[in-house]
Amino acid sequence: MTRLAKTFEALRARRGRALVPYFTAGDPSLADTRRLVIEAARRGADVVEIGIPFSDPLADGPVIQRAAQRALAAGVTLPRVLELARDLRGEVAIPLVFLTYYNPVLAFGLKAFARSAADAGADGVIVADLPPEEAGPLSDETSAAGLDLIHLVAPTSTPARMRLIARRSRGFVYVVSLTGVTGVRDALAPDLVTQLRALRLITTRPICVGFGISTPEHVRAVAPYADGVIVGSAVVRLIEQHAGTSRLLEEVGRFIASMKAPLQEGE
């Protein structure tokens, strides 16, 4: 059983839900990302997503776009993110999932990427611009390497596509909560609960919801319908606000704890 599967099984057994914060690797520096991930795990993160920056992140809104630009300007490359993962694997026990776009993976080599990522101790990978139709070659390599390739469901996905994606996805199914790019939002999409219920009828795989989830109220609203909640832009925005200050870890750590609270067992 993979580390992701074990994590969700254990959570389900105690009726808990996963908090999955996202960090762009190297924003503001790789050393900071390392400290932030360790702090996140300490404050209750159950899984961490580590973004491998790409020059043209077309699924991302301004907050994560800026983070990627900062990371690339700081000289972050895919091999250095793999090193970061290897280092983190020695520090934290929770699953580590890469989130990126297809071109950096393709440039590195699909087999080399899958092997190196698994070897570094990463557990899964999400490729934002790789729908199941095009994922065959990478999926062959990630399966062989024991890495979970996680697919996304969107509000525009038809029932047939939801079934296809749920079948192909490993580790969990990533539900994009809204029709749009990543970013902090005031309100959740009105039809999100309907979408989550529909997906539950299709699959028994763990379901994690992301895009736009920014407050403990959002978390509380989706928690009953999902196995986990992914928080991206809200975390990255905090990092942007506090980068270079002594309060960075504390601010991000406190936010993560506040987002985790509604997901605790029995809630």
């Binding site: 611009d129 729908p131 697919h151 969107a154 996905s157 596509r161 994009v176």
Partner: peptide
């Protein structure tokens, strides 16, 4: 049928755009 010219082309987009 999936938009490939040999190995080129295809649809490398976020899932949100697949149905559209």
């Amino acid at each position: 049928a999936l938009g490939h010219f040999g190995r080129y082309g295809g649809r490398y987009v976020p899932e949100t755009l697949m149905s559209p």
